[in-house]
Amino acid sequence: MDIGTIDQIIDNHQSEAGSLIQVLLEIQSQNNWLPKEALTRVSERLKVPMSRIRHITTFYKTFSLVPKGRHEVHVCMGTACHVRGAERVLDTVREVTGVGPGETDPELNFSVETVNCLGCCALGPVMVVDGEYHGNVETAETAEVLKKCTCSSE
């Protein structure tokens, strides 16, 4: 992410310190993660101490300080999904993407996370790929959905 884009985002918020979280959210959504250079720039322009930015970015789960993949995979491990075989879904995800929960593959294709409930237990086991919900996923379907992602990104 280049400095110009970051400056543009900051300018859109009139360089106000109060807009810190909004600015960070925009950088996060455009870039998938918050590189250190971006944080330094935000700190300088909004005149917010770095310690405060680090406090906020480590507090909210939305922010990532490490690179994230192009495709975000969330596997629900809530009780309902768990009894319906979320563990198997996660295993398949691990097999196809090669990464476990909290990890990102070196090609930056996938980031895998587990979540505790997505609020649609009737669909369990649920997997969310790039914001799209896949309910009642079987092993084959899981693999298919993920493979489609790799194909479309290539």
Partner: peptide, 18 residues
């Protein structure tokens, strides 16, 4: 954290995570 921020205004130490 507060001493560094309020008295010294250096912000060198901070809380991380939650």
């Amino acid at each position: 954290v507060r001493y560094c921020a309020e008295v010294k205004q250096k912000h060198a130490v901070s809380f991380f995570d939650r």
